[in-house]
Simulated assay, not measured.
Amino acid sequence: MTDTHIDREALSVLREVMEDGYPELLDTFLIDSESRLDQLQKTADAKVLAELAHSFKGSASNMGAVRLATLCQALESDAKDKSPAEIVALVADISSEFADVRPVYEDERQHALTH
């Protein structure tokens, strides 16, 4: 996976700063992301979508998921101006991007637990 998806340097810094808490941080990110995705897929309310996208963007950004954060930013900024079909497409993009990066975070977690 290219660095357009994940900022490896950000992960490296998190690994150093969090030390023993790093696997738990990864767990929390994965669980929260699943939950936010589920909520994004179930709501049609632009205000709720923007709020969800904002919190998802923040955690994705903190975790170095660069493209995921960018997609969430787009949804947060444009939710009120998009058609339902456009929102569905953007949520699908967010979901697809999370599916792409998720294994990286799972591998990080495994690695952190075994070292």
Rank of each mutant, 00 (worst) to 15 (best):
R67N: 04
L14C: 03
E86Y: 00
V48W: 05
S59G: 11
D20F: 00
T70Y: 01
E34K: 15
T70V: 02
E86I: 01
D20S: 13
S12E: 10
L49G: 04
K80P: 02
D78M: 04
V66F: 08
A50G: 07
L37E: 13
H54E: 00
D93W: 02
H54M: 08
V48K: 00
L30S: 02
M18T: 06
P23I: 09
A50Y: 00
L75H: 06
D81W: 03
A53P: 06
L40D: 05
S33G: 15
A60G: 14
Q39P: 01
P84A: 11
I6D: 00
V88C: 09
L37D: 10
Y22A: 01
H5P: 01
E24G: 10
G21V: 02
N62Y: 01
S55Y: 00
V91H: 03
V17Y: 02
S96N: 15
S12I: 03
E86W: 02
P84K: 08
D93C: 12
S77T: 08
F56H: 04
A60H: 07
L14M: 14
D7V: 01
L52Q: 04
V13H: 07
L49F: 06
R36L: 14
L30P: 12
A74M: 07
L75Q: 08
K47R: 04
M63T: 10
D38G: 12
M18N: 04
S95R: 07
H5F: 15
D7Q: 14
M18Q: 04
T70C: 01
L25C: 07
E51Y: 09
A79N: 05
D27A: 13
H5A: 14
S55N: 09
A50C: 03
L52D: 00
S33N: 05
K82R: 10
N62P: 00
A44C: 11
K80T: 08
V88R: 14
G64K: 06
V88M: 11
T28K: 02
D38H: 14
A10W: 09
I94S: 00
I94A: 00
L75T: 04
L26Y: 10
D7G: 04
K80G: 05
A60L: 09
N62W: 03
Y22K: 08
K82T: 04
F29A: 05
A44H: 13
H54A: 07
E19P: 09
A69R: 04
G58Y: 05
I31L: 08
L40S: 08
D27W: 06
S83G: 11
L68P: 05
L40Q: 00
L26K: 00
A79G: 05
L75F: 12
D78S: 15
G64W: 09
V13W: 01
T28R: 10
D81A: 11
F29M: 05
K82H: 07
T4C: 02
S59F: 11
E16R: 13
S95M: 10
Q73H: 10
